[in-house]
C-alpha cells in the first residue's frame, strides 16, 4: 500500500427502488427520501438519496478493496450536496473513486474517497482509516 495508489472505482445508479430498500434496511423513513410531494414542499428539487446511503456506497469502494471490512477502523464524511433521484429506471448516477492518502507508522492508512453526482462532489472530506 503506497500513497497515491488508486482503488478500483464504483459507479452506482441510485434508483427510487434502492431508496425504498435502504429506508427499510436502515430504518430511516424520512419522507424526503421517498415522497416527491413532501420533498418538493420542503424546497428540495425532488426526492433525494439518504446521505447515509451515499456514505455506505463510498464505503464499499474501501471494503471491496480490503476484502475484510473489519479492517476499517474509522470512516467519516461530510454531506455537502444532495443526490437528486428522478422517478425513472436509470436513477441518479453516482461515481466513486478512492486513493491512498497517507500511510502511517502505526500500521494504518488513510483512504480518501470521492463521490460525484452530476459532475460535482456530494461528499466532503470522505476518509477511511484502515489497518494496512
Amino acid at each position: 500500500m503506497n500513497v497515491g495508489d488508486e482503488l478500483p472505482g464504483l459507479s452506482v445508479h441510485v434508483t427510487r427502488e434502492q431508496l425504498v430498500r435502504y429506508a427499510g434496511a436502515s430504518l430511516d423513513f424520512n419522507p424526503i427520501h421517498w415522497n416527491e410531494r413532501f420533498a418538493t414542499e420542503v424546497g428540495l428539487p425532488n426526492v433525494i438519496a439518504h446521505g447515509m446511503l451515499t456514505m455506505a456506497l463510498g464505503g464499499r469502494v474501501v471494503t471491496d478493496w480490503l476484502g475484510d471490512p473489519g479492517r476499517v477502523v474509522e470512516y467519516g464524511v461530510r454531506f455537502t450536496r444532495p443526490v437528486v433521484v428522478p422517478d425513472d429506471d436509470e436513477g441518479a448516477l453516482v461515481e466513486f473513486t478512492a486513493k491512498v492518502g497517507e500511510v502511517r507508522d502505526d500500521g494504518t492508512a488513510r483512504i480518501d474517497v470521492t463521490a460525484k453526482f452530476d459532475g460535482r462532489t456530494v461528499l466532503g472530506k470522505a476518509q477511511a482509516v484502515v489497518r494496512a
Partner: peptide
C-alpha cells in the same frame, strides 16, 4: 426538528 439536516457523520470502530 423539521428543519434539521445531517451535516457530517463519522464512525470510529473499536471492533466490527
Amino acid at each position: 426538528y423539521d428543519r434539521m439536516v445531517h451535516g457530517d457523520q463519522k464512525f470510529v470502530h473499536h471492533r466490527p
